[in-house]
């Protein structure tokens, strides 16, 4: 997981020094479980660590999101292989459903509560989760009431969309629980329209 900035040299090493054991591991999920408490405690340390290095809520959420990016990027390929037989989505609606159903199930064991499109803007979609597991054990201090640690989930979603060829910005809001607001690049929507009817 630490190796997405591989240099040419490392790349060569990797293929010449013999197969690493990790390449022999099956992709199919061996279902293993950990306790939610273990995750909550780990996540809490992460948030505290990020907090010790920033000055504002926005920066803190930014840091959480960038950690989420790492998770999303690692998860995408394995999910596409497992759930879609290696076939990538090409339509906006399908990639959103992939996130609502497959990604959510892999991460949280359930589908996301809702997927909605903004009434007045065809670039904007919402994924709504009433009680995200991530926020279950977090109480937000009054003075930072806008902080939503699901920014981490936002980062995961943003990475999955971006790496699938649907560049988008994902922001997180307190609305009907937690709402992830997905704003696609204009080019993505334009491309999707040309695909209509095919």
């Amino acid at each position: 997981m630490l190796n997405w900035d591989m240099s040419q040299n490392e790349m060569e090493n990797r293929f010449t020094k013999g197969k690493s054991a990790i390449l022999e591991m099956p992709l199919a999920r061996v279902k293993t479980e950990v306790s939610v408490s273990a995750f909550a405690l780990l996540f809490s340390e992460m948030v505290q660590y990020c907090q010790s290095r920033v000055y504002s809520v926005a920066e803190l959420q930014g840091r959480l999101a960038s950690m989420g990016h790492g998770v999303g990027a690692s998860l995408l390929d394995v999910l596409v292989m497992r759930e879609k037989n290696g076939k990538r989505e090409t339509k906006v609606l399908n990639i959103l459903l992939f996130i609502k159903v497959n990604v959510w199930k892999a991460l949280f064991g359930k589908e996301a509560d809702k997927l909605e499109q903004a009434n007045d803007d065809d670039k904007t979609y919402y994924i709504i989760e009433k009680d995200p597991v991530i926020n279950a054990y977090i109480s937000v201090p009054k003075e930072n009431s806008t902080l939503n640690c699901a920014a981490f989930t936002g980062g995961i979603v943003e990475a999955i969309l971006t790496h699938s060829g649907f560049p988008a910005k994902v922001t997180v809001h307190w609305h009907k629980g937690t709402t992830l607001m997905i704003k696609f690049d204009a080019a993505v929507i334009a491309r999707d329209k040309t695909l209509d009817g095919r």
Binding site: M1, L2, R29, K31, T32, E33, V34, S35, V36, S37, A38, F39, L42, F43, E45, M46, Y49, R53, R63, S66, M67, G68, G70, V71, S74, L75, A106, L107, F108, G109, V133, F152
Partner: peptide, 24 residues
């Protein structure tokens, strides 16, 4: 009751944390 969750989110989250520490 001890709630369980899929270990992959846990594993990847820990990975993201270690990656961040290695950068910092």
């Amino acid at each position: 009751d001890n709630k369980k969750m899929n270990s992959e989110l846990f594993t990847l989250t820990y990975g993201a944390l270690v990656t961040q520490l290695c950068k910092d």
